[in-house]
Design a binder for these strands. Structure first.
Length: 424
RNA sequence: GGAGAGAUGGCCGAGCUGGCUGAAGGCGCUCGCCUGCUAAGCGAGUGUGGGGUGAAAGCUCCACCGAGGGUUCGAAUCCCUCUCUCUCCGCCA
């Protein structure tokens, strides 16, 4: 959410930034409601002041045994008026909130303007794409042939877009999770968390999944609770409503969680394999920091995620998302895409964003500078480090052998009990 | 699931027979004094959000005692609903 004052004072800038993202908002209504709100607020506060003063007089008079009946009658009327004003005030505030909640973050000045994913500039490409004598198989074929992935039985158990890992496959997924968490906690300084996988409405609103994107979420029947679509949600909300000491910043958190997404509107996309599932595993990185450090923190967050791919020796590229392709809460986002040889394309495996104060304002995450009065909003960042299922898929495709087996990347072997190769 | 107790400022903790209580007292923290050092002691200050005014410091007003409603001229204090925490019983991984 943007600051109401900022929107009030920068209407045209907000409108311009919205258009580069391909969004609109009812700023006319905002302007009108905002003006009315302030007018009513002024009147209501004046009456409340009068009520406070007169109530004190009434107390004095009663103490002296004097008759205060006429004042009581007058105040009865004033209180009625206040009640009316407060009601209309909250209506305006609700309407303003609805508009404000629907406005995406303002892109950072360094973000390239563009319409969609085809306008995302490639920043760099790392690693060498493997050569294959014959056409490489897609990961679902590799996995099913090895008996480590079973989509048919998964759909029997639940339905489409759920994974079933078996044997060395289940173990590989678990190994990847441990591998990623160990690097982030032991080498990059993140604190490991194991948060709830179900969160309430306020938490979902804090990180901006709500109110706008409710249809993307799984909601529990009979509860105002939701399955998390990413660990970004519980991790960023750890300090929801808190005022942190400057010395506590930056906070780095990492967690493995399953992620649940309804994938509404993606029918027919990536129907095969691990790429687009209703449930998938992810190791997430979250940072909470002071505003002046957040763009440096974004660069190091990106490099923390890249480390995983480098250690696994998987080829990848990094893109800067253009204004039209960025997520709702982000000011700037880098995507990491891993090489998928069977399709001959790079696929997103991590998305690293600086949300500046956009989420912090909603989740009320503030900090106090030493020796300074007042509080400031923190900046929040998040990134995948990495999407585990997609990493699994990339390993199957990049490390597949002509005989159908899959070599385990060196870095992972200790996590696989020394296993060097998965074969039938 | 049944019975009871509670939720107050950074923390602890009064107030809860309604009216100078934004809130006693203590701890912590900041600044100053004192002091071989440290500790102790003394003095002052120390919440958040939102209006108005001002270049700013500031001044001023409104709101906030878990959340939301209600009663009242007036609510931290009374009533209702909800959430959470704790204790006991039951059930259970």
């Amino acid at each position: 959410m943007l600051e109401i004052k900022f929107v009030r004072q920068n209407l045209s800038e907000v409108e311009k930034s919205l258009s580069t993202r391909g969004n609109t908002a009812d700023l006319e209504t905002f302007k009108a409601r905002d003006a009315m709100r302030r007018e009513i607020l002024h009147e209501a506060e004046g009456l409340k002041h009068r009520r406070n003063v007169v109530s004190e007089q009434i107390a004095d008079m009663k103490k002296k045994g004097e008759d205060a009946e006429s004042m009581v009658l007058e105040m009865r009327e004033v209180s009625g008026k206040i009640k009316e004003l407060d009601k209309s005030l909250s209506e305006h505030e609700e309407a303003i909130m609805t508009i404000l909640m629907g406005i995406p973050n303002i892109p950072h000045t360094s973000v390239p303007v563009g319409k969609n994913e085809s306008d995302n500039p490639v920043m760099k490409q790392v690693g060498k794409c493997p050569d294959f004598d014959s056409d490489p198989k897609p990961h679902w074929e590799v996995g099913e042939n090895l008996g480590i992935l079973d989509f048919e039985r998964a759909s029997k158990i639940t339905g489409a877009r759920f994974p079933l890992y078996l044997g060395a496959g289940a173990k590989l997924e678990r190994a990847l999770i441990s591998f990623m968490l160990d690097i982030h906690t032991m080498e990059h300084g993140y604190k490991e968390a194991l948060p709830p996988f179900i969160v309430n409405r306020q938490t979902m609103t804090g990180t901006a999944q709500l109110p706008k994107f409710e249809e993307d979420l799984f909601k529990l029947e009979g509860w105002d609770y939701f399955l998390i679509p990413t660990a970004e949600v519980p991790l960023t909300n750890i300090h929801q409503g808190e005022i942190l000491d400057e010395g506590m910043l930056p906070r780095y958190y990492t967690a493995y969680t399953p992620c649940f997404r309804s994938e509404a509107g993606s029918y027919g996309k990536d129907t095969r394999g691990l790429i687009r599932q209703h449930q998938f595993n992810k190791v997430e990185l979250v940072k909470i920091c002071s505003p002046e450090t957040s763009y440096d923190e974004l660069e190091s967050l990106l490099s923390n995620a890249e480390t995983i791919l480098k250690r696994l020796e998987l080829p990848y590229q990094v893109l800067t998302l253009c204004t039209g392709d960025m997520g709702f809460a982000a000011s700037k986002t880098y995507d990491i895409e891993v090489w998928m040889p069977a399709q001959g394309v790079y696929r997103e495996i991590s998305s690293c964003s600086n949300c500046e104060s956009f989420q912090a304002r909603r989740a009320n995450i503030r900090f106090r500078r030493k020796g300074k009065k007042g509080t400031e909003l923190a900046h929040t960042l998040n990134g995948s480090g990495l999407a585990v299922g997609r990493t699994f898929a990339a390993i199957l495709e990049n490390y597949q052998q002509p005989d159908g087996s899959v070599i385990i990347p060196d870095a992972l072997r200790t996590y696989m009990g020394g296993l060097e190769k998965i074969e039938v």
